[in-house]
Amino acid sequence: MPVPPPQTPRSHAPRTSDLDRPDVLTLDDVLATDPGRHRVLTGDRPTGALHVGHLFGTLQTRVALQRHGVDTVVVVADYQVVTDRDDVGDLPTAVRDVVLDQLAAGLDPVATTFFVHSAVPALHQLMLPFLSLVSVAELDRNPTVKAEQAASGRTSSGLLLTYPVHQAADVLSVGGTLVPVGRDQLPHLELTRTVARRFNRRYGRTFDEPSALLSDAPLVLGTDGTKMSKSRGNAIELRADADTTAAALRGARTDSEHVVTYEPDRRPEVANLVLLGALASGRTPQDVAAEIGAAGAGSLKRFVTDALVEHLAPLRARRAELARDPSVVDEVLARGAERAAALAGATLADVRRAMRQTT
């Protein structure tokens, strides 16, 4: 099981103004009450291999939630792959790889439910009544939609425009009470809460408004100092071998200063390597920077490579073992689809009754 992350750098900690909101919780808030009363909905688009940014940014949080008895549901959003691309590639293999990465990272399919979007039709039927509850203007000015559109470099499709409503259907279909998000994703969840509130007002009490589980996980950048992404060629994949990991880190961008310091705002590339080394070794970034110091960027890269390869070795061994039996993922997804379909079917029945669409 991955070690918990060390002390989070101040620049990535949740803002006080965020934490003052009653609909925004931290992991400590959840664990301090009754973790078993929550249901988390989270997920991934199967657009490429999961990488160390996913591990330290989201997967460790999922493992912690599972370990403390929080009912966790993970959607592999295959339908949303076409949101911003024409070619979906080998989607079945991509779905399988995403699930394998998460199982290898420590998620237990007995405690955590995995399902694929396309396996739960009732979820998507909820989109129609939900779309009637929001305006085009609200969708058009959603900052997350704008960010996705800018990243894709394409004209906005109807699916991209309604992406937040689709996510509302994800959450509300399974009765999710908590949604792990970063600060930049809070507008997405706010729209989910708006959909639930407006449906309740129009048709009668049907949904609870989910809360945000605000992550304080540090942001891990790619080897070029920008957002880690497979499409940018700057990611360190969880399934990669040690030599591939070492090669990626040897080519990681640094700067012209010789002494290694941890200054995320002034020296983001160097700070990112320090952070990676700290996360992999279970230390603070400040300690790692102090140890490397005048030894320079070459020593820093060697330290990070050794720490990360050692940290990922058990995960990669588990993944290789799981991948030898194709039926493992098939069984996980079949069991998850059965549960998700039952939850979404019950929700759809409640919606129809509330809207008086059934006798």
Rank of each mutant, 00 (worst) to 15 (best):
Q60G: 13
Q60T: 15
Q66F: 01
R67N: 12
R67K: 11
R67H: 05
H68F: 04
H68A: 13
V70C: 11
V74H: 07
V75M: 10
V75T: 10
V75C: 08
V76N: 00
V76L: 12
A77C: 04
D78L: 09
D78Q: 06
D78S: 05
Y79P: 03
Q80I: 00
V81P: 03
V81T: 14
T83N: 06
D84L: 08
D86Y: 05
D87G: 09
D87N: 10
V88D: 07
V88W: 06
V88C: 11
V88S: 10
G89N: 10
D90E: 12
P92I: 04
P92M: 07
T93D: 15
T93Q: 15
A94R: 15
V95P: 08
V95N: 09
V95F: 08
R96W: 06
R96L: 14
V98A: 15
V99L: 10
V99D: 05
V99W: 10
V99I: 09
L103F: 02
L103P: 04
L103Q: 00
A104I: 01
G106L: 00
G106D: 00
L107I: 08
L107N: 02
D108L: 09
D108G: 08
P109F: 07
V110S: 09
T112N: 05
F114S: 04
F115S: 02
F115V: 01
F115C: 01
F115L: 05
V116H: 06
S118H: 03
S118N: 09
V120Y: 00
P121Q: 06
P121L: 02
P121F: 03
P121W: 01
A122H: 00
L123I: 09
L123S: 02
L123E: 08
Q125S: 13
Q125P: 01
M127S: 04
M127F: 13
M127T: 06
L128G: 01
P129G: 08
L131H: 05
L133R: 03
V134K: 05
S135Y: 14
S135A: 12
V136Y: 13
A137S: 14
A137E: 13
A137M: 11
E138A: 12
L139P: 10
D140F: 09
T144Y: 05
V145A: 06
K146H: 10
K146D: 04
A147F: 04
A147L: 11
E148H: 14
Q149E: 15
S152N: 10
G153D: 05
G153H: 08
T155M: 08
